[in-house]
Amino acid sequence: MLGETPIARALTGFGPGLGYEVAGPPAGGFAAESLAGVHAVVVASHGRDEEDALTAAMRAGVPYVGLVASPRRGAAVVGGLDLTREQRDAVRTPAGLWIGARTPGEIALSILAEVVASVRGRDGARSAAPGGGPAATGRPEPRTAPDPVCGMTVAAVPGTPYSDAGGERRWFCCEGCRTAFEAEPGRYAEAR
């Protein structure tokens, strides 16, 4: 686990209850040899030391490597890694199964569910994610929309913050993004 964010703290709290040892970065930092026997590496550090941790985990063959980030930021970070295309494609970002999670605890739950699926050899672990297709789960996908402020994909369902400012309904990951949008809707008009 890399990070001191609320999501990282929630993962650290929930993991042991599922029988998983959750530890910080290995002594001496992330290096391929220090990751032997590790089943999962989750990076939830808001941009700190992400690249080294992700690269080392993929080169070490860690079965589950996840990055907590918006789809836009995650794609940018992963796209810049010095890895093969296959290795970059294997990094799970945004980390976690798509369950409509919004709070740090809910996001941690979705990540741990994806880790469990990966550790248990369930290759379809991403089938419930946006774009995974409803046929994989037997349920229709939740309707989603990008937050025009931060780029995070959010569930467009009752209870999700939204705004009709600018003449079109848009959904947000949190009240802070909604407030920023409503202060300057023209600035975010192109984001959809």
Rank of each mutant, 00 (worst) to 15 (best):
M1P: 07
E4M: 12
E4C: 11
T5N: 01
R9L: 04
L11K: 11
L11S: 08
L11F: 06
T12Y: 08
T12D: 12
G13N: 13
P16N: 07
G17I: 08
G17S: 06
G19R: 08
G19F: 06
Y20T: 06
E21W: 09
V22N: 06
P25M: 14
P25A: 07
G29Y: 13
A31S: 11
A31I: 08
L35Q: 11
A36L: 12
V38C: 05
A40K: 03
A40W: 08
A40Y: 03
A44F: 07
S45A: 01
H46A: 01
D49C: 06
E50C: 08
E51M: 14
A53D: 10
A53N: 14
A53C: 07
T55K: 06
R59K: 10
Y64T: 04
L67M: 15
P71N: 13
R73S: 11
G74W: 01
G79M: 07
T84N: 02
E86L: 13
Q87K: 02
T93M: 15
T93R: 15
A95C: 09
G96F: 12
G96T: 04
G96Q: 15
L97P: 10
L97N: 08
L97S: 10
I99E: 04
I99S: 06
G100W: 07
T103V: 01
I107V: 04
A108P: 02
S110Y: 10
S110L: 03
S110G: 02
L112F: 10
A113G: 03
E114N: 09
V115Y: 11
V116C: 14
A117L: 13
A117V: 11
R120D: 13
R120A: 04
R120E: 14
G121W: 11
G121F: 06
G124Q: 14
G124N: 12
R126H: 14
R126Q: 11
S127C: 14
A128L: 05
A129S: 11
P130R: 12
G131F: 08
G132M: 10
G132E: 14
G133E: 10
T137S: 13
G138N: 07
R139F: 15
E141R: 00
P142H: 13
R143H: 15
T144S: 12
A145E: 10
P146G: 09
D147V: 13
D147K: 01
G151E: 11
M152W: 05
M152N: 13
T153K: 15
V154E: 14
A156L: 12
T160Q: 13
D164I: 00
D164G: 00
A165M: 00
E168P: 03
E168G: 04
R169Y: 00
W171I: 02
F172I: 05
C177N: 06
C177W: 03
C177A: 01
C177H: 00
R178Y: 05
T179S: 00
T179H: 02
A180V: 05
A183T: 00
P185N: 00
R187V: 09
Y188H: 00
A189R: 03
E190D: 06
A191I: 07
R192P: 02
